[in-house]
Design a protein around this nucleic acid. Structure first.
Length: 423
RNA sequence: GGAGAAAUACCCAAGUGGUGAAGGGGCUCCCCUGCUAAGGGAGUAGGGCGCGAAAGUGUCGCGAGGGUUCAAAUCCCUCUUUCUCCGCCA
């Protein structure tokens, strides 16, 4: 969430930049300012009363010992105590309202984020390699998967429901090979591997921004305050919730494999076939914790490191910067990496690399220390490194052969034990 | 899942309603001792929030959240985590 002090000191900037997300937040900002003023007024009053209370409380045992009559004083104190209680209750209420209001306000897009209404306005930053020219009619990965008997959505529909897959034989192995290749590459680049829980509680979901606004996208476990994670970002970022990270540990760079679970509410009909949009998918996520002054630099590193695994697999991609209308709720700035998908005839998102600045850190209370040893909010970043199912789809499509077989990218052959998937 | 016990600072730990939350270890600094060991002395509760230009000052912090009381580490309730035992399980 945003810092109330920052909002107070940058009212106009907050309003104008937030409005570029496609919806005005003027009302929310004004409500925050009013609640903040109320809160500070109450605190001023109640703390003066508490100081009086403390002073008198200390003198009561002395007076008793001296044999003085304290009944009148006690009655007076009872009244004071009542007043304190009322103001404390008011304060709690105002602070809750303020907090809830702040949680509904998204991050302010960073200055370099271009204005734009939606994803058609995202400027391309760079491109790597060229889409392959096929001398035959290329098939979509769902057709390849079916022909090779390595992907089976029909059985998954019976066993579970729509938007699930069984992977079989070399298909399952390919998914596993990609996970291993990603993790090995990132750990070689200095990341620490994490295997997190795939379930997280409501406090964690709130810390990273999934709650309260996006509850309908998640799988809630009945009769608990726990949810299936939509990304490893949630458990990994929350590892440091309510912590102060020692300065010499920064930057912390974690690479975490997890299954991800998403309700995909509102996605009916989109990407209905294949591996692109599933309720459960695998992803390797990169999560960075940095000192505030280092986060922009780390965003560039993080993006390059995510790109690096696509280069290793020889998959053509491009990088775009999300415009103000498309950048995610908690993010100040996001690069999307899009891989070439022949069946779509265009680039398809396979990774999203974001700098949240202190937005998540404030929500989750993640701090570090500055040079003077004073605690301050850390900056958090994360990026897919990268989505595994979409990578498998891209490999099947980009590496398919005229005879229906699929060549295995060189980087995966050690994991696959073969250089081709055929019939 | 059931029963019991516990949670106080970097660590150990005292504290069953009342003026600044004991004590010890460790750590830092100083003294003494040609080095070392031993000894002596001093310091060692962080963090949030409010007011203030600042110095400062107030307030809240004894696992978390409520409650009782003029006053709570202490009494009551709920929750979390850890340990022991039992059950179940990979």
């Amino acid at each position: 969430m945003l810092d109330v002090k920052f909002i107070r000191e940058n009212v106009e900037k907050c309003k104008t930049r937030l409005a570029l997300r496609g919806k005005s937040y003027d009302e929310e900002i004004d409500a925050v300012l009013a609640l903040d003023q109320q809160r500070r007024d109450i605190i001023g009053k109640v703390e003066t009363m508490k100081a009086e209370q403390n002073k008198v409380s200390k003198s009561i045992p002395k007076m008793k010992k001296a044999g003085e009559d304290v009944t009148a004083l006690l009655a007076e104190m009872k009244e004071l105590s009542q007043g304190v209680k009322e103001l404390d209750a008011q304060r709690t209420q105002v602070e809750e309202q303020l907090h809830d209001m702040l949680l509904t306000i998204p991050n302010v897009p960073a200055d370099q984020v271009p204005e734009g209404a939606d994803d058609t306005c995202n400027p391309e930053v760079r491109r790597w390699s060229e889409p392959r020219q096929f001398d035959f009619e290329p098939k979509a990965h769902w057709d390849i998967g079916k022909a090779l008997s390595i992907l089976d959505p029909e059985t998954a529909a019976k066993v579970t429901g729509s938007r699930f897959h069984f992977y079989k034989g070399m298909g399952a192995r390919l998914e596993r090979a990609v996970i291993n290749y990603f993790l090995n590459t990132h750990t070689d680049n200095g990341y620490t591997e994490i295997l997190p829980p795939f379930i997280a509680n409501a406090a964690s979901m709130t810390g990273t921004g999934q709650l309260p606004k996006f509850a309908e996208d998640m799988y809630h476990l009945e009769n608990t305050d726990q949810y299936l994670i939509p990304t490893a970002e949630v458990p990994v970022t929350n590892m440091y919730r309510d912590d102060i990270i020692p300065a010499d540990q920064l930057p912390i760079r974690y690479a975490a494999y997890s299954a991800c679970f998403r309700g995909e509410a509102g996605a009916a009909g989109r990407d209905a076939r294949g591996l692109i949009r599933q309720h459960q998918f695998n992803k390797v996520e990169l999560v960075n914790f940095t000192a505030p002054e280092d986060s922009w630099n780390q965003l560039e590193n993080l993006t390059r490191e995510a790109e690096c695994v696509l280069q290793g697999l020889g998959l053509p991609y491009r990088v775009v910067m999300l415009c103000t209308g498309d950048v995610g709720f908690s993010s100040a700035c996001t690069y999307d990496i899009e891989v070439w998908m022949p069946s779509y005839g265009r680039y398809v998102e396979i990774s999203s690399c974001s700098n949240f600045l202190d937005y998540q850190a404030r929500r989750a209370n993640i701090r570090c220390r500055n040079e003077k040893g004073k605690p301050q909010y850390a900056h958090t970043l994360n990026g897919s490194g990268v989505a595994v199912g979409r990578t498998v789809a891209a490999i099947l499509e980009n590496y398919q052969n005229a005879d229906g077989s699929v060549t295995i990218p060189e980087a995966l052959r050690g994991f696959m034990g073969t250089d081709v998937i055929g019939k």
